[in-house]
Design a protein around this nucleic acid. Structure first.
Lengths: 166, 166
DNA sequence: TATTGTTATACTCTATAACTATA
DNA sequence: TATAGTTATAGAGTATAACAATA
């Protein structure tokens, strides 16, 4: 009865997370062979990539930027350190585990980048570089919007009463 | 030396899969509590959602639409059948495992939808419904483009010689 | 013979809580 | 006391190969 008018909303609502997942799956599949070819996992690659654009980063920052939980990051640090891809860096705050790429790590990063670049360029050409830019902008803004909602949840039944009065 | 002019490409290239991941993470976090609250995993929810829009689907179709590998899907079928959320449906091709929602499953789907709708609406309002539509279109088109590239890889060094001649 | 799913198996990530060290 | 990270642990997904059943 009153379900029908809601259908449109439902359709949108349901397709957003799925669309993000499926698009990521499709694009990742293009480049994953280059990652696998160097015995890297996707999370490890994200760490490598994040460190390539910064001199050094601490665990918390990497955890947020690479969407990796701290316990996973600890294992990834261990694995990548054993392979000589990263090294720990001194930090004023001794609690922080700060890491940076080694020369080996940077070389591996550059190699993967070089190998995968033709496919990235091909994808950008096929899709349209400008549309890709627009998509990236929208993605980043939607992420900010969603994060803002998580950080500032609505007041639920306190909509009208800012301070709890009852 | 010749690295500098490539940086722009690299920047884009590297940020695309990450942007998709982070945006999905942020949006998912908004709705995950509603899923968790009913003891569903995200893949189970995707299956529930896919089945809610179709009378019945086979494993292959669900595997593609929900981005779940067949072995995982087998386990998910088992768990959801035990909970009485889905049931197997007869199929002309006896090889196919075809499933549909039970009344319990549909009721659960509707309940989760109802509970999460305010947040979806709030997100759409905050981001802008039209921009959200545009984002969804771009996502779906990029997925098609990427899938097309996976299905039709370039000829590598055969660019100029269609048939292997050397 | 090709296709659809399931089983088996190993590995990794996800997620929480408890703990240690530092500030 | 609060914060940063590690450890411990349980559970689920990822991925491949091998197998069974059907077409």
């Amino acid at each position: 009865m009153n379900q029908t008018p809601k259908r449109e909303l439902h359709k949108f609502e349901k397709s957003l997370p799925i669309a993000l997942l499926r698009t990521r799956e499709a694009t990742t599949r293009l480049f994953k062979p280059f990652i696998d070819g160097h015995d890297l996992t996707m999370p490890q690659w994200r760490v490598l990539r994040a460190l390539a654009e910064a001199d050094a980063l601490d665990a918390r920052t990497l955890s947020e930027r690479c969407v990796i939980l701290p316990p996973s990051l600890t294992r990834i640090f261990r694995a990548m350190t054993q392979r000589g891809l990263i090294r720990q860096v001194e930090c004023a705050d001794a609690r922080r585990h700060m890491v940076a790429l080694t020369e080996t790590g940077r070389a591996l990063f550059e190699q993967v980048l070089q190998e995968s670049e033709p496919d990235y360029t091909r994808l950008a050409k096929a899709f349209g570089p400008q549309r890709l830019d627009m998509l990236l902008d929208l993605l980043n803004e939607l992420r900010d919007t969603a994060q803002g909602m998580v950080d500032n949840p609505p007041d639920d039944d306190n909509d009208k009463a800012t301070t709890a009065g009852s």
